[in-house]
Amino acid sequence: MEIRLLTPADAQSYWTLRLEALKNHPEAFLSSYEESVRRENAVEQTAENFTTKANYTFGAYDQAQLVGVVTLLQEERKKIRHRANIFAMYVSPSKRGKGLGKALMTAAIQQAKAMKGIEKINLNVTATNQRAKQLYAKLGFQEFGLEKNALKVDDAYYDDLYMVLYLNEE
């Protein structure tokens, strides 16, 4: 298993895994599978995102196949530039339980620590996703809020749990 920063050359494999994530777990992502498959130039836009300043997407590879991803994005606006956010965390079901989620999150946290001025990392997770919540808590994230009915998928509502990791409290 290898964890590395993704580059524009990885955009197609990322997009394929992203669609898998949206299809398998519609409750875990703001984007829907249906909207995403209709996006024009999705791979090209993804490649461009991989070159955006303060936007880091890490991938977990198993024998040259992308099987997990996470994105760290620093806020741009002056008053909130001390914050970064974790987005789009996903590991393929067949590869879960092998430490890839922890390795991806650790890479993102280390990147944030290496960046000038980042003091905390925020993320949100579906409140019923016990495995993800446990992972984030083990890595030092603390709960700070709950948004009831944050997402509606078909006729089902899902709550979002908000978590934060303060980098200067270690």
Rank of each mutant, 00 (worst) to 15 (best):
V43C: 04
K78R: 15
L22M: 01
E169Q: 14
I109R: 00
A132E: 03
L151N: 05
N24W: 02
A114W: 00
G145C: 10
H25D: 00
N122G: 10
L167W: 10
E35H: 13
W15H: 13
R39L: 13
N129H: 08
Q12I: 13
V69P: 05
K23C: 09
L135I: 14
S13Y: 06
A108I: 06
P26Q: 09
S92G: 00
F141G: 08
E170W: 13
K98F: 12
S31G: 01
A108S: 05
A88C: 01
L167D: 07
K133T: 14
A11F: 04
E35F: 12
R77H: 12
A21C: 09
K113G: 00
V164P: 01
M163T: 04
L139Y: 00
E75A: 14
Q12V: 14
L73S: 11
L72A: 02
R81M: 07
M89Y: 01
Q74P: 06
G59T: 06
E143P: 07
G101W: 03
G117W: 10
D10Y: 04
E20T: 14
M105A: 11
E170Y: 14
L100G: 02
Q74G: 06
R131T: 13
Y157H: 12
L100D: 00
A88S: 11
E76L: 15
L104S: 04
N49P: 10
K148L: 12
F58K: 07
G101L: 05
M105F: 02
M1W: 03
I86D: 05
L123P: 04
A64R: 14
L167E: 05
I121Q: 05
A103P: 08
Q134F: 10
M89F: 12
D155I: 15
K102C: 11
T51L: 11
A84R: 07
L30T: 14
N49M: 14
D155Y: 11
A9E: 06
R83L: 14
K113E: 02
N49Q: 13
G97F: 11
K152T: 11
D10W: 04
T51C: 11
F29Q: 01
E40R: 15
F87T: 11
A112H: 00
E169D: 08
P8C: 09
N49S: 15
K102V: 15
T7C: 07
M163P: 03
L135C: 08
L22I: 11
G68W: 02
P26M: 08
I121A: 03
A28P: 06
V91D: 03
F58I: 04
A9N: 10
A47Y: 02
K53A: 10
N149V: 02
V153H: 00
L30H: 07
K95A: 13
T106L: 05
G117E: 03
T71M: 01
Y90C: 09
S13K: 15
N149P: 08
Y136P: 09
L161S: 06
Y158S: 03
L151P: 01
T16Q: 11
Q142R: 14
D159S: 13
L72D: 00
G68L: 04
V67R: 01
A114E: 06
A132Y: 01
N168G: 08
K78V: 13
G117T: 08
E143T: 12
A103C: 06
K120R: 15
F144M: 08
N41A: 13
Q74I: 09
R4Y: 03
L73G: 08
S36R: 13
L5T: 10
